[in-house]
């Protein structure tokens, strides 16, 4: 008998004495917890996102669409970046004001090659105000998961208020499970030394989030 059949057999025998339960799943679990915590205006929700991002050491900037290229150019310049990775579907205008070398992500680029690029600029799928989280789903303006992981500096553009939700339940509703998803709340961190949080381990040590309005 296969391992599969033996395990399933053991599960069924283990449950043989358990009380019958035909409750449909929709009714088996009380969902009386809050869909979001507190009532806020749209502007207040965006403010809360900014506040929580900062609380976990992300650097937050705000601008309108017209000011975005200059802001991105400024952020790359401030860091003395020599190269910036560009996801295949990033709006070209976002990088129109920077002179920093743009590196297109190639399917055959090795991790070592990615490691030599200083920065990456992406969009995002959704941002969660209550937790200060941005979620990437691999869409063309975000690219493969590795390009936001290996470079040490990530600039993530969030279109406000359209891409901002209040809560984790609201974010899950917007996401497509079949896509590879990365939830990011602040730069890489660890609590492994005396349970004290330290920012900056393997992921990008600098996370800059640009909240852009009018996009």
């Amino acid at each position: 008998m296969s391992g599969r059949d033996r395990i399933l057999g053991r599960v069924r025998r283990a449950l043989a004495g358990a009380p019958e339960d035909d409750t449909p799943y929709e009714q088996a679990v009380p969902r009386d917890y809050d869909r979001r915590h507190g009532e806020r205006s749209t502007a207040e929700t965006v403010d809360l996102l900014a506040e929580n991002l900062v609380d976990y050491r992300a650097v937050v900037h705000r601008c309108d669409l017209a000011g975005l290229p200059a802001l991105i150019a400024h952020l790359l310049g401030e860091r003395d970046s020599t190269g910036v990775l560009v996801p295949p579907g990033l709006d070209a205008s976002w990088l129109s004001a920077t002179a920093v070398a743009q590196v297109a992500d190639r399917a055959d680029a090795t991790p070592h090659e990615l490691d030599r690029v200083d920065s990456v600029v992406t969009g995002c799928a959704v941002a969660i105000a209550e937790t200060g989280t941005i979620v990437l789903d691999g869409s063309a303006d975000q690219g493969r998961r590795r390009i936001t992981l290996v470079p040490d500096h990530h600039i993530c553009v969030v279109r406000v208020p359209d891409q901002v939700v209040s809560s984790v339940p609201e974010a899950l509703e917007r996401l497509v499970p079949a896509r590879p998803l990365t939830w990011i709340s602040g730069p890489s961190a660890t609590s492994d030394i005396e349970l004290d949080r330290v920012e900056g381990v393997h992921g990008p040590r600098t996370l800059e989030v640009v909240l852009v309005s009018g996009a």
Partner: peptide, 14 residues
């Protein structure tokens, strides 16, 4: 934490 720094979700291969 309100949320841990990174959560990865994957479904089979992409």
């Amino acid at each position: 934490e309100r949320m841990n720094p990174y959560t990865s979700m994957w479904t089979g291969t992409t």
